[in-house]
């Protein structure tokens, strides 16, 4: 198959690859668009692929060749020097040795976990509710139907303390659970989903539901944020609210339960 046509084409492809490589380098040097640099680099690759394939075709052996397969058949293990296969000595010894080394290997890893920093939310009785910009909120700062992410004052963006403050319309407050945890329609829940920990960021004002965009768990705001749809099994922990003498919203303590997803050891 070594006729002239593929050969001249191969040569042309190699020259194209070389020129495109120079072009790509130049384009990168003058900060041309990534599409141009990448396109020229792709041209280098395709031209090279063509040249190699054409050469392979030209040198292609006309017929299949055969190579006998080796059979890796089972052969009986010949007796080893020294009677090491005798039970009792050999088996147990290795078992003990392996066990001892496993202990040595595992202990340092178990010890790793001790370096953990203690965590937990920063909500304490009297802590003011502030926006991510650090602005403290009064009971009527949030419009009815509104929603705002809040943190305890002095701990903005503290992950475990991430809280959602909502202002319910007065007709919804009437039938709500834990009415004494609210203040003037203001109600606050942990924003960390109890399913997989995503921020429960979407508020459906019409149906008074919180909706998690990750796995579509839905929580009923009026009924202590209990899950009504989706994979979550536990209500969003609630924060009991009050106002301080200056009229700012404050927490009366920590959340009603542990925040975030459950583990086998840590749950409500």
């Amino acid at each position: 198959m070594g006729d002239d046509l593929p050969r001249s084409l191969t040569r042309a492809a190699v020259v194209t690859a070389a020129l495109a490589a120079l072009g790509a380098a130049l384009a990168a040097f003058v900060h041309a668009s990534p599409a141009l640099v990448g396109g020229l680099a792709a041209l280098v690759a395709f031209a090279t692929a063509f040249a190699l394939a054409a050469t392979a075709r030209a040198l292609h052996a006309p017929d299949d060749v055969r190579e006998p397969r080796t059979v890796h058949a089972t052969r009986a293990l010949e007796p080893l020097p020294g009677d090491v296969t005798r039970r009792g000595v050999f088996d147990r010894f290795w078992l003990y040795a392996a066990g001892a080394f496993a202990v040595l290997g595992i202990v340092p890893f178990v010890a790793l976990a001790r370096n953990a920093a203690p965590s937990g939310t920063k909500w304490r009785a009297g802590a003011r509710l502030v926006t991510p910009d650090g602005v403290a909120l009064r009971a009527d700062d949030l419009a009815v139907g509104g929603v705002e992410t809040v943190f305890p004052e002095g701990h903005v963006s503290d992950y475990d303390s991430t809280t959602l403050l909502l202002r319910l319309p007065s007709d919804a407050v009437g039938g709500a659970d834990r009415r004494d945890w609210m203040h003037d329609g203001n109600v606050a829940f942990s924003k960390i989903c109890t399913h997989a920990g995503c921020p429960v960021a979407l508020y459906r004002q019409a149906s008074l539901e919180l909706y998690c965009p990750c796995h579509q768990s839905v929580f009923d705001v009026v009924h202590a944020a209990r899950p009504v749809s989706g994979p979550a099994t536990r209500a969003l922990p609630q924060l009991a609210l009050d106002v301080d003498p200056e009229g700012y919203l404050i927490a009366r303590g920590d959340f009603s339960g542990p925040i975030g997803p459950d583990s086998w050891g840590r749950t409500a």
Binding site: A42, A45, F50, L52, A56
Partner: peptide, 16 residues
């Protein structure tokens, strides 16, 4: 040669 060509082809497709 065909393996090298396949390498260059992979590079080309990814670059595009």
């Amino acid at each position: 040669l065909r393996a090298l060509a396949a390498l260059a082809l992979t590079a080309g497709v990814v670059l595009v």
